[in-house]
């Protein structure tokens, strides 16, 4: 076989590929540049070139926001059931157990009590990778309890949302989680405690149309897609292409729907500062040494 044959070339290429471990480089969805994955990870999944925000794994999100050693997880043992006996191409029960195996989580939301730069909060974050962060009974219950816990401990609530909306496989019960969470939130508000809603990419449907858009203060990460109806549904309804940037965080800010867009690097200090101001707490003493990066360095923290 001659040296220029197709087969030979393919082998050559694939051996070349093998010499570079996969995932070492990554293309930025924002600016298209090829980047060292380690650099992106060090910046908590933000593009060092254009600032594009990639999805941040939950564990890193917790390290980024909650003070070391302060986080205590709550309600982790809540498990979803299949109230309708739902079946499409697979049964809901099978989907749940497959996801549990894959993600190590029981459902799409995690709740904590912890500190953000010294401010005590009842805190929760969606796990989009679990069924698109959809809200069923477990998610709704955890969120209602998160607000109730904030009320009980007289501390603010902070929820980071990333969700496709209500979970169809739990039918009407998932819709009712919108009412349940909003009712619990109403009681928190009645108790005079602040609630900050942080919108991550994407936040739509029943989650947007309940507690996510009910923050005393609502902020979003840059570029996050936020809306009631998904873009596909809107395009089908109006039979038109949507304008670029539609339903992005910048669009929401322009239309007066959110208070601010806060880059991930500034999120922790922004939350702490705002919560202190709202609660009339004194500002903390300035940090001893100025840090070169606004991101805290990655891992080392073990969460309890």
């Amino acid at each position: 076989m001659s040296w220029w044959s197709r087969k030979n070339k393919a082998t050559e290429l694939s051996s070349e590929k093998r010499s570079v471990p996969s995932g070492l480089f990554q293309m930025c969805e924002g600016c298209g540049s090829t980047l060292d994955s380690q650099l992106i990870e060090a910046a908590y999944m933000c593009c060092p070139q254009c600032g594009h925000h990639f999805t941040l794994p939950t564990e890193d999100r917790l390290r980024l926001l909650l003070d070391e050693g302060t986080a205590v997880e709550h309600d982790a043992e809540l498990s979803p059931v299949d109230p309708l006996g739902f079946r499409d191409s697979k049964t809901y029960a099978d989907r749940l157990s497959a996801l549990k195996k894959k993600t190590g989580q029981r459902d799409a939301f995690r709740s904590f009590m912890g500190h953000i730069d010294g401010v005590a909060v009842s805190f929760g974050v969606f796990q989009f990778e679990f069924m698109g962060g959809s809200m069923g009974s477990v998610v709704g219950e955890k969120i209602a309890r998160l607000y109730e816990r904030a009320r009980e401990h007289r501390c603010p609530a902070v929820v980071l949302s990333a969700s496709g909306g209500a979970r169809m496989q739990e039918g009407i019960l998932s819709l009712m989680q919108m009412a349940k969470t909003s009712a619990a939130l109403g009681r928190l508000r009645g108790a005079g405690l602040p609630y900050i809603s942080v919108l991550l990419n994407p936040t739509t449907g029943g989650v947007a149309a309940s507690f996510a858009m009910l923050g005393d203060i609502i902020i979003a990460e840059p570029g996050a897609m936020v809306g009631f109806a998904g873009p596909r549904v809107i395009e089908q309804t109006i039979r038109q292409k949507l304008p670029p940037g539609f339903q992005r965080a910048e669009f929401l800010l322009e239309h007066g729907m959110i208070d601010a867009i806060v880059p991930r690097a500034e999120l922790k200090s922004w939350l702490a500062t705002t919560l202190r101001l709202l609660q009339k707490q004194p500002a903390p003493p300035p940090p001893a040494a100025s840090r070169s990066s606004s991101f805290p360095s990655l891992p080392k923290v073990s969460l309890t």
Binding site: A183, A209, S210, M213, F228, A229, I234, M257
Partner: peptide, 26 residues
């Protein structure tokens, strides 16, 4: 259902629905 259109999104369909849920509960 609530109308899924550009204008509805611009004026905050999600917020409008959400607020009613909270208000009605109380």
């Amino acid at each position: 259902g609530a109308f899924p259109g550009i204008d509805a999104e611009e004026r905050g369909q999600a917020e409008a629905i959400a607020k009613n849920l909270e208000v009605m509960a109380g």
